[in-house]
Every structure is written in structure tokens, then in C-alpha cells.
Amino acid sequence: MLRFFTMLSAVVLALASPALAKDKLTIYTYDSFVSDWGPGPKIKADFEAICDCELEWVAVADAVATLNRIKLEGAGSPADILLGIDTSLTTEAAETGLFEEHDTDTKNLRLPVEWTDKTFVPYDYGHFAVIYDSEKVKTPPASLDELVNGDPGQKIVIQDPRTSSPGLGLLLWIKAVYGDKAGEAWAKLSKRVLTVTPGWSEAYGMFTKGEAPLVLSYTTSPAYHMVAENTDRYRAAAFAEGHYMQIEVAGILKSSRNKQLARKFLAFMTGPGFQNHIPTNNWMWPAGKTSEALPDAFDKLVKPSKSLLLPADEVNANRKTWIDEWLKATTR
């Protein structure tokens, strides 16, 4: 008992004592980024090796939730950098006035689109896709329409667009394909939805555990299974209408007390030291130069016939309305 208290007070003291002499960079991100198998721990080690600082990852369920957290904490946020939101949220994030210009050189980026945003810097991109378990699904849906109108007994796990960027991605995907008929499409699709999770990790975990044969993820997800598990059991379904694109970004908070260090991190982020970890840890396409070649598995991935991306301003102006439409359609 006494030992327990000694230990406890040691912990309390450790928590209460002021941060060590080193500067600390606090970065909010989604949880899969910093999981043991994600790129977070390796990037932390690599960056700390060159910055003489401490990097602290703070994981929040999913990308949209990280922005909500920042809004909630306002100017008092302990975060220096927000990493992980995508282009569907950049306008909204910039409008909060909580972020400042990045002043980072973006010439070396290798994106399928031109990058002009002054507040956020991209670090990877990818396309959303429905991943299926080929042992349970013999004829995967060949289009979004087939997914929507398919067998309601064959379940899919999706993410909540209010907290998760894949969730928001699907919302925009359906909007881009169905337009005014999106509500009806959601009403049909919701019959196939096993559950709506707040974050990507929870959904993907349920999928790999066998709770559902379909899950919303990325075209790049099968690469993980090929490289890490040497199996092509889990595959992306290529959709005839094209796939919605996601560009993931990071930005510096105005309230940061370590802006110098934060800028250093953004510059590091666009270089090989960071980018090398993206393909095989975050399982996305790198947005900058890597010094190592991509694994062969990336050549075998589904290549979207068409990249869909709604303009950021349009998304920002309508996000709430479209979420309401989704809420209504899925509770009907």
C-alpha cells in the first residue's frame, strides 16, 4: 500500500513539474496517425533527432474532431499545429481565424492538383474507396450506385461526417455523384450501414475483425495488407463514377508559443524525412518527394477512373446543410 502511494506521488510530481528545458511542440492529429503502426512514432523520433525539442502527439478520434477540439479550446489551445484535416475543411478552419499563414515553400510538392492555400500545407493525398473482404464478397459493387442499391443484408461500416474525414468524404462523394438526390441515396444506403463510428480506426478495426464485409476507407488501404500481411484478401472496389479525393494538410495555430519550431516542422513535413514514412505507415500517397521507392503493392492499387473534388468554398458553404440532410435521411 505504501509503495503504491510512493509511486502515485511520484507520478503526480512528474506531472506537476514544469516541462523539461527542451522546447515542446504539441501537434493535434487523428488517432490512427499516431498509433503504434502509424507514422507518428517514427516521425517523432526523426524530427526530435534534428530539432533538439520534444514532439508531443495528441490524438483525437478523427480529423473533423481535431478541428472541433481546436474551435472549442479557441485561443487557449495548447496545440501548436493541427495535422490531419483535409481540403473539405480548410476554408472553414481558416475562417475561424485561429490559424496563421504557413510561409512554407510548396514548390516541391507532388500533388495531382496545384496548391495555392496560404494557411495549410499538404502532406499526403488519396482517394476514398469501399474496401471489401474478398472471402465474403464475391461480386463487389462496381459503382457507387451499386453500393447504394445493393443487398441491405451485406453490411458496411462507415464513419460519422461530423467527426471523421472519410465520413465527410463519403458525404461529399455522394453529393458529387447524386447532387439533389443525395438524400434519397443516403436513405437507401443507410439500410446497409451496420454502424456509424466516430473515427476511421474504429470502423476499420470492426471490418478486419469481421463485423462487416465492407468498410469505407482508401484505395491505398489494400497496400497495407499486401505489404504488412502479404495478403490480397482485402481489396478496393473501383467505382465507375470515380473516387472522391482527399488531400490531408497541416497548419500552425496563431496561439502557438513555438512558431519558429512549428515552421521548422512544416518544412520538415514536405521533405523525405517525413514523406518516407507516409506510404507504408499512413498508407496514403506522399505529397512530397521521398528518398525511397514506393513498394510494388502501390502499383497494384485501384486507379480511380476520375478524381472527384468539390471546391473547398462550396463545401464550406454547404457542409452544415448537407450534414443535416444526411442526419434526416439516415434517421427516417
Partner: peptide, 12 residues
């Protein structure tokens, strides 16, 4: 902005 959709959701 309490849209009709949102009110429908609230009712549900």
C-alpha cells in the same frame, strides 16, 4: 439555421 432537415432529425 435550423433547417427543415435538422428539425426532421430532431423529431426522429
Amino acid at each position: 439555421d435550423l433547417s427543415a432537415d435538422y428539425l426532421g432529425f430532431v423529431w426522429s
